[in-house]
């Protein structure tokens, strides 16, 4: 009996040890993940004089918002451009994706699966493969070099992913509900409007967050389609800021933080939906 207690004690000790080890490992990863963020914050709160290469990890002597002010002056217009771009691009794509998703989940016409797969392929392609014709096309219709061209681009190349997300979401809604709608005399679009749409809220949130984040974070389309600094969204402006001759690291870090804030806020406030969207949408990359 005593032997049993002793072994139980040592077993428990082993469990405790293992728990401690577990937290230590998790803690190390927390440091690895937050370390860069610490540097970001600390550098952005320093004055230009205070940014010394050898004291990069040291807390600023005096907290200063100088860098943020400088970054906002330079990036302010681009921040606005990003919102002007992201809001319509997100809403329109979500609307189109929703009705497409409804059709592809509930109305399997002949060949609909092939068509759907062909649409889906559009989100996997490296966009470099359509970039040259895209630029030529936008130029022809007078949308090259402005936000309109960029919005159109994001709307169209956003269709596959939003369609997929809504399709998977609507697939969960039981067919019986739709049948009932038909019994009540609704037809195709009526069912969508009266039955599907009211049930769409969680799916819509996921899609909107996903699309908002990926359009906000896009760089390739933005840098190709907009070259004038006045119309560029924030990712391109940040990249230009970082590539400019005089390296003001504090302003760069402040700029990076400003560019990250909108999506980070969404992540923190709506993390659950964000992650759901990420799991559903990350196939796009």
């Amino acid at each position: 009996m005593t032997a049993g207690v002793a072994s139980l004690g040592s077993a428990r000790w082993a469990v405790v040890q293992r728990r401690v080890l577990l937290y230590v490992v998790l803690g190390i990863f927390v440091v690895l993940f937050l370390g860069p963020v610490y540097v970001l914050l600390v550098t952005s709160l320093k004055t230009f004089q205070d940014v010394s290469l050898s004291e990069m990890w040291v807390f600023p002597r005096a907290v200063s918002l100088e860098a943020f002010r400088a970054a906002l002056i330079r990036l302010g217009p681009n921040l606005r451009n990003s919102f002007v771009l992201v809001i319509p691009a997100t809403l329109v794509t979500a609307a189109i994706g929703s009705i497409n998703g409804y059709v592809f989940s509930k109305w399997r016409f002949r060949g609909s699966n092939i068509v759907f797969a062909l649409i889906l392929f559009g989100m996997f392609i490296p966009y470099q493969a359509i970039l040259i014709p895209l630029v030529q096309f936008l130029r022809t219709i007078g949308l090259y070099g402005n936000l309109g061209g960029l919005i159109l681009t994001h709307v169209i190349y956003g269709i596959p992913i939003t369609t997929l997300m809504f399709r998977n979401f609507y697939a969960e809604i039981p067919d019986e509900l739709l049948e009932a709608g038909y019994m009540d005399g609704l037809e195709l679009f009526g069912v969508y409007r009266r039955i599907m749409l009211p049930l769409s809220a969680p799916g819509l949130v996921v899609v909107v967050i996903w699309q908002f984040t990926s359009v906000w974070n896009d760089f390739l389309f933005a840098v190709t389609i907009t070259q004038r600094p006045g119309v560029q969204p924030i990712t391109v402006a940040l990249q230009n800021l970082a590539g400019s001759q005089v390296v003001e690291w504090n302003v760069q870090m402040a700029g990076a933080l400003i560019a990250a804030v909108p999506t980070l806020i969404i992540y923190i406030l709506l993390g659950k939906y964000f992650i759901r969207g990420m799991l559903a949408g990350s196939v796009k990359g």
Binding site: N217, L238, T263, M278
Partner: peptide, 17 residues
């Protein structure tokens, strides 16, 4: 939350950082 927050960032932000 900590391990996944970089997912919310743009590759540009990550690169600059």
């Amino acid at each position: 939350t900590v391990y996944m927050f970089p997912m919310a960032l743009s590759f540009i932000v990550t690169g600059v950082l």
